[in-house]
Design a protein around this nucleic acid. Structure first.
Lengths: 152, 152
DNA sequence: TATTGACTTAAAGTCAACTTTAAGTGATAA
DNA sequence: TTATCACTTAAAGTTGACTTTAAGTCAATA
């Protein structure tokens, strides 16, 4: 099956102009064109675009993705570089997930706080709440947050 | 304890210019100043900055954080708005974590792929690998990836 | 054959979140 | 007292990743 840029964009949920931008930046050196100069998208192109989206999701800048494409074009002599790159990406994503989980601790505490505040109609009342009124779960969360973010 | 902007910046791992920018954008309406006009950072200011960093980590733009600050300044009449905001942030962070976990599936597949490729000295060899040579774990990962990202 | 609609390009514009610069102030150490 | 240093401001500059615009091409339909 062959697709135009508009169809490819819709299928992938990317804008056509973004795909053109990736192409311009050298991220799609495989793109075929029709005799009229129109880009033709085949299964393999979708795979490349999905990989680009994946690398972007790891917070990788376009120029680093291009570096990876260049290594690919160089062939098997760059296999180790590409392997190392993916292991680095793995570590990066794992860090991002960890950071988000810590963020979630703070957000969860705030959800509890505002639940209480809405119930009592006052934020002050929650701030002044007696310790034994705070559920264990929330007390732990609060300690955890302070551990993460203690100002030394 | 009182701190200058430089000390606060160092403690929080933010740049002083970033803190000044937040202040300019109205994110720090509580800041005290010395008679000479120098910002004085106390424990409470650190808490606010940490909350700003937390909200930024959820991908919240500065102008939305300012909206939250404005609600805070309005007092208890906005408790529900603030509660709803934190529940939205919770959902947002949970989505981000989910997306990163899917990203990690692709990255993990690629790590396996390049491990094999480096071992055999050829990417082609891995692409052409017989199905029964691919570990179950990796086969599942591959299916999962295709499920997530199927091009309809 | 003429119109329509999606494609093409190069170049300029946009956006958020800072960062940098330039010019100046205030407190402390030599 | 003079130099140094960290602070202050407003305003301009930077960055990355697009998006928009303007001018044009191509293929299919009326």
């Amino acid at each position: 099956m062959e697709f135009t840029i508009g169809e490819a964009a819709e299928k992938l949920g990317i804008s056509a102009s973004a795909i053109r931008y990736y192409d311009k930046e050298g991220l799609l050196p495989f793109m075929d064109r029709s005799t009229g100069g129109i880009r033709i998208f085949r299964q393999e192109d979708f795979e490349w675009l999905r990989l680009i989206e994946c690398l972007k999701a790891t917070d990788m800048p376009i120029k680093d993705i291009k570096q990876f494409i260049n290594w690919f074009l160089e062939g098997d002599s760059t296999l180790e570089k590409r392997r190392d790159m993916f292991y680095e990406r793995k570590k990066a994503v794992e860090s991002q997930i960890e950071a988000l989980q810590e963020t979630l601790d703070t957000i969860n505490y705030k959800c509890w706080f505002y639940d209480c505040a809405v119930k009592s109609g006052s934020a002050e009342a929650v701030s002044c709440m007696a310790k034994d009124e705070v559920p264990d779960e929330i007390r732990k969360l609060k300690e955890k947050i302070n551990l993460y973010k203690a100002v030394k």
